[in-house]
Structure formats: C-alpha cells, structure tokens
Design a protein around this nucleic acid. Sequence first.
DNA 1: TATGTCCATTTGTCTATACAATTATACGAA
DNA 2: TTCGTATAATTGTATAGACAAATGGACATA
Lengths: 363, 363
Amino acid sequence: MIIDRDSPIPQYFQLQTWLHEQIEQGVFKPGDRIPTEEELGQVVGLARATIRQAIQNLVNMGYLVRKRRLGTFVLEKVAAPSTQTIIGLLIPDIRRGYAPVLARGVQDEAAKNNHSLILCDTDDLYIKADFHADRMIENSVSGVIFVPTAVSDGQNQSIIDKFQRNKIPVVLVDRSLPTVDIDCVTSDNIKGAYDLTEYLIKRGHKRIGITLSTLINTERDRLEGYKKALRDHGIPIDEKLILTHSGPFNEGRYLKFVRTLLKAESKVTAVFAGHDSIALLFYSQAGKMGISIPDDISVVGYDDLDLPLISLTTIHQPIYEMGQESLKLIMTRIRGEVNSTQKIVLETYLVERSSVKSLNTSN
Amino acid sequence: MIIDRDSPIPQYFQLQTWLHEQIEQGVFKPGDRIPTEEELGQVVGLARATIRQAIQNLVNMGYLVRKRRLGTFVLEKVAAPSTQTIIGLLIPDIRRGYAPVLARGVQDEAAKNNHSLILCDTDDLYIKADFHADRMIENSVSGVIFVPTAVSDGQNQSIIDKFQRNKIPVVLVDRSLPTVDIDCVTSDNIKGAYDLTEYLIKRGHKRIGITLSTLINTERDRLEGYKKALRDHGIPIDEKLILTHSGPFNEGRYLKFVRTLLKAESKVTAVFAGHDSIALLFYSQAGKMGISIPDDISVVGYDDLDLPLISLTTIHQPIYEMGQESLKLIMTRIRGEVNSTQKIVLETYLVERSSVKSLNTSN
DNA sequence: TATGTCCATTTGTCTATACAATTATACGAA
DNA sequence: TTCGTATAATTGTATAGACAAATGGACATA
C-alpha cells in the first residue's frame, strides 16, 4: 500500500513523495497524464482535498501542470528560467540623434513583457562597449540589444562573442555586420537613399552633392543607393561631389564639406546630407553665407529627427518601431522559440517638406 | 466589505490580494502578526479552508510565515543580499527636453561606481511610475533616482513610500516635494529666473511677458523669481502678461499664449519663456508672423538645451551635473554614510547669446 | 465546409467539520 | 532556582460534499 495511515508522516506528504518518485524514476514521463484526482482517491483511499494538496505542492515545485477537463500532466523538467527580467541596450550616446526614440521604443515593449531596460552608452568606443558588456553579464541580463559601435567589425564581433559565451542572446539594431550571422533589425538604407535621390532627380536636379561617413555600413548603403539612382537615370557620377570621411561624426570635419558644397563653384543644385544632423549644418552654414534653402540650394536629410524651426525633406526611419521589433525579437530568443537567424528590415518612407525646389519649368 | 461574493474573482484570491495590499501598504508591517485564520474567517465571512488557501499562497510567495500556536507573521522582505549593482532612474520621457542629458550624467557617474542604470519612463503618469517602481523592486535595484511626476504630491509620496518600505534609498532630481523630507538635487530656479528677468530689465525692458506651467514647482519658482525681480526694480506686475496653465506641457495650449504675447497689442518688448521648448515656439511663431527676434521682440528661455540654428539667451541648468550629483548622493546612501537629509542646490548661470535687444540708447 | 450548440469530464472553488501537532505560558513540584 | 507538566491558542491535516468553469469532442445546422 502506498499510504501508511499510522505513520506520523502526513498522508498528503506520503502521496506527494510517492508521486515525486514515480516522476523521477520515469514511471510517469514528461507529457504523461497522471490519474485523475478521483481515481487517485479511489486507489490510495484518501479524500480529494488531500490528493489535491499533494498535487498542488508538486505543481508549485514545477513537476506537474493541471489542465481543466484534461487532467494533470508531468512537466518537462526545465532549468528554472532566470528570475532576472532585464534587457541590456548598448547605444552610442543617449543624447544624440535618434537614440532617445530607440530607447523609448525598446522600453515600452519591454514593459509589455515585464522586463526592465539597462541603458549603456558606448560613445562608439570599443573600450566602453566592452566595459558595459561585462557589467551587463554580471547583472545577468536576459538579452542584449546592440547598436554596433562605429569601429571595426572585429571589435564588434568580440563584444557579441562575449555575450554569446554567456548564453545571452544579442540582436543588432540599425547597423548590421555583414560578416556576422546574427539577428538584426534594420531599415533599407539603399532603397531609402535611392528614393530620396530619385526624388531630387525628378525635380530636375542633376548636380547632387552628398556628404556622409563611410565608417558605418548604414551610411555606406545610402551612398550606394545614391549612386544607383544616378546611374539608373543616366546621370554621371561626379566623385568631386561625394565628400566622405571614414571616421566617426565630427562637426568640424563636416562643416568643411558643407562649405565646399555650398560654394558657388561647386554648382550643385541639391545636396544629400548623410543624416539629419548634417542637414542641420547646411542650414546653419547657409544662414551665415546668405544662402537660402531651398531657393538657392535644395537639401535633403535622412532619419526624420524632430527638428524644430526647419522644414526638411527627409527619409523617415521607423526608429521607435525598430526599438520595439528588436525587443520582440530578443524575447523570442529568450523564450527559445526560434532557431534560424532573423533579419528584420523595416520600411522607410520619404517625408516631403519644403527644403527642395523643383527646377522643372513645367512643374 | 473586502470580499465580493458576486465577483467572478475567486474569494480566496480576493482575500489574498487584499492581504498583499495591506502588507505592501505597510498596514501589516514586517514582524506583525496578522489575524488568526479563525478571526479572518469571522471578519470576511469565509470558511477556514478558503482563508488558508489565500494565506498559503502568500507564504509560498514569501510574504508570510506561519508559526504553529503563535499565528501567521509578515516577513521582513529581505532583498537577497544584493549582489545587484543597479540604480533605477524614473524620468518623465527620455525623448523630451533635458532627459537624455540627465540620463547620461547619471549613467557616466554610475559607471565610475561600477553600477548599471535601469531606465524607466513615467510619462508623468502615476500608474506608469507605480508599475515601473514594482519592477525596479523586483529587480532589486540598490537605489532610485526619481524625477517626480507632474501629478499630486500624494501620489509621488506613495511611490517614494513603496521604495522606502523595501529599504531602497530614493533621491529626487529637479523637482522637489516641499512636504517630503527626502534627499534631493535641484537648481535654484528662483534665483535663475530673477537673474534672467533682471538681465532684461537692465537692457531697458519694462513690459516683460511670461508663459509657463504652474503644475510643477520648478516653474512656479521661476514665476516667483520673475515677480521678485520686477518688484525689486519698481516695475508693476501686470497679470495680463502672465500666461500660465496648470496642466502638463501641451504644444497647442502654449502656441495660443505665444501668439497672444507676440501680437502688437500686448506691447511686450520681451518675453520670458518658461523653458527652452516654449522659447522655440516663439521662434517658430515669430517666423510665421513676420516678427524678428530680437529686433521686434526679445526672447529668453530656461534650461539651455542644445538648440540648433537659434541663438537663445537662456539660463544654463547643470543637468548633466545634476545627474552626476544625484548618483553620488544615492551611492552615499547605499553605503550608509550619511543620516541627515541632503538637499543639494546647484548653481545656474545666464548664457548670453543674441535673442535679446538692448533698448538703452546709451548701450 | 464552416459554424454553432450541447455534453461529459476534469479541475477549480468553497463550505463545514473534526481532530492532531506544536508550543508559549503559567503553574506547581523538586 | 530549576524542572516538569498542564493548558490554551493556533496552525496542520484530513474528510465529505457541492457547485462552478473550462473545454475537447460529438453532433447538428447553415
């Protein structure tokens, strides 16, 4: 008999122990249904409430699940999922560009999933990214959302490796690493830049300057989209109108480029600023040089930052949504729901404002 | 009555929730004995088995401990000897105003102390602040830096209480609560506004409009500084030039105020914008109305946000430093180094740019 | 095929009752 | 004082019975 009614050990506990043994010994295997409370009551000769007490304890201990109308089942013994519910976000600088919006998107989605967000700024420096990565691992984050630093792919790779060695899933946002097979959420910079350039071309612009950084692949993609649009419309690419720089964003450097393009000798009728912050430099320089936008020169940007006082035609990047998507993606990884690498590319769209003048007489 | 027998929510769960609340709110304090099962049964009119079910769940959750013959007691909520090195930051919205700079200040200082930063946005809503507070407590943060929400002091107080019941130190930043004796880091808004107003007066301005929110005590202080400066210089206060609103920042509302002040009838020669974001509205509206700043009207702001394209005379608030100081303060609390309440007031200074015209002929 | 309805089964919630086990406290005896 | 013992209070264990709620599956209907 399973239950010894004379034992000082409570009967519910005797039953609980017996059930536990059956599970541990594989008599009841994961997925199996154990007898109903009614049946157990008959077999061991105990009241249903007593049976329930034994079963409830095993449910609390994670050995069983009850399902209404179906019965009680043995659970797959899973390693207790870490009680930590923290996601790490590694971005260049919370004060710059779209970072606050991205952080907010991640955070709102994290809140929906009952996770908190640890925020770390890398300043695009490997050493800071590495430092924060260590701290995140120490604080046992469940996953990391990483905007790769504007340094070598190898260094970014080594940050990612560090997380993966600790079995922490990583999702890249905005900037991807072509050589690394890893989940990422980006937008289609080639298409966005293509659309934007085509927009200028259709308004009669032929000499279109561009200035951006070749350090980050998002901006390299924009350059590619720009060139492709020119080629497709039979406009020769003039390398003198392409002013690039391979380092991180530096205001003084770009101010030089901006001045060069604004000078009458350049004869450009429109400029493509690699991102909205550069477009802003065009506005401030043009003001100083007595040049009017868009009357004297047209300017387009990229990002659609919330810029007061100017009305810039630009490409809207769904930054907030990228934050949300990257968090959703990391949650599926944490829950172990997917295996194959996910590459999510979000749509961008052109926002027409009034920084571009149409040169078409018919228009 | 505590129990609603018509509710679809199980009665044991209603009781459990109620008990949980009593504990959270400190009605039952750690060490207290709660009523016996018998007593509870009498009070709420439930069978003892039902009472037990509620209590058992709370025991499992670690809120209560039962002792035979003695009763059931509230447990000291011992945050596992926190190896956690995380600080929580509760701010209204990381995307707005100075929030990114504050967050960065906190974070850089946290990094120096080997702590990480959990970021939570409240949107100035009590319910969100409360939600994030619970999550921070769950993640056992070592301390919290809190920008009070723009709601009633009582609600802010209840957030603070929640942390303090869990022995988590709290520091207020920017906005203080006059009725609460708690560490805080602020800047002297009365003096800043006084200096700024005096600056205008010394340049010959007598009709000075002001528009701000009276919801937050920082802005109320600025209004006070403005009035004091006028009084001290023998300029009568014209209530018609004071346009206030008692709700949270709302662009439409302030645009109306801005237009009123810009109209020629108002005859103001200068306006004091409650913060830089409002100053920005003056610029955008003035542009539309063909009014030139500072030639037709002078404008000053408050905060010294990094505003591109305009050259606004404003009061610099040491936001980054406030973030740093608040973190330093919380670290001293965590290390238990101080006992008395610390009220740190940082210096502000006037940044003279070119949004103010001098009306003095001699100048 | 798709959709709605009903039924039987199983767990979920709740009551009422009884006795057992534990233990702080008081009290009495050594 | 010290030790043992009785007592009362409180939680622990257990029973028996009732109705509620969810739901897979069978069956009927559109």
